[in-house]
């Protein structure tokens, strides 16, 4: 555990909580892509199957359980409790275009050809692109609520901090996981355009709206 890992995890946790609170307090999931949230629930489920096979630490186990629990709670709020406010017409990204190639890639490129390892690889690849339905939705409507942009910023920052964590681990522990690093790099790059808008607009007190 190093400072980048810890702040990365906390940033990820903050993102998840911000989104849950936003939906709960406003009693609405307007502007939120349910498809991205389903993908994140799938990501956590397939990655944290190791909860059943290996114990690392109390921190590790509780964070995994919190992430999984919050992911399903978010999906429940969007598709069940506040379904009336869900903006399905704008959430039109075709997720099969992500899930199918990512599944194929996980079978082809992995550390070890076993079910658990392929599912873990699948979750790493899927996480790197799971935000695309949400970004697509924002580009379609041309705007996002400020609280939604805080959510996206924390979520993007988390993987960027993990990149620093992997550099740290390479130098100090000789640890190198190319699958996680390359997928994490892709994931972070996808947020760059958003980071730019966040810094130039949202942090200056303006609402995030895209030019028509």
């Amino acid at each position: 555990m190093n400072v980048f890992r810890l702040t990365g995890d906390l940033s990820h946790l903050a993102a998840i909580i911000i989104l849950l609170l936003k939906i709960w307090k406003s009693r609405s999931c307007a502007g939120i892509s349910g498809k991205s949230q389903i993908l994140f629930a799938v990501v956590f489920t397939t990655r944290y199957l190791d909860l059943l096979t290996s114990f690392i630490s109390l921190y590790n186990t509780s964070m995994k359980l919190i992430y999984i629990g919050c992911a399903y709670a978010t999906v429940y709020l969007i598709y069940m409790k506040f379904r009336a406010t869900y903006d399905g017409n704008h959430d039109s990204f075709r997720v099969e275009f992500l899930v199918v190639p990512v599944g194929g890639l996980a079978v082809l490129i992995n550390h070890n050809f076993s079910l658990m390892e392929i599912l873990w690889t699948f979750s790493i690849y899927l996480e790197s692109v799971a935000i695309l339905p949400q970004l697509f939705m924002i580009s379609k409507t041309g705007e996002a609520e400020t609280i939604t942009t805080h959510y996206l910023f924390c979520l993007g920052l988390y993987r960027a901090l993990y990149l620093l964590n992997w550099i740290w681990r390479y130098y100090f522990e000789g640890f190198l996981d190319m699958i996680a690093i390359l997928a994490g790099l892709v994931q972070t790059i996808l947020y760059c355009d958003f980071f730019y808008l966040y810094v130039t607009k949202v942090l200056k007190g303006k609402k995030l709206s895209l030019p028509a």
Binding site: N60, Y67, E173, D177
Partner: peptide, 10 residues
């Protein structure tokens, strides 16, 4: 330690 040797990351 090249490759995935741990389950410790989230």
């Amino acid at each position: 330690a090249i490759g995935r040797t741990r389950h410790d990351e989230l």
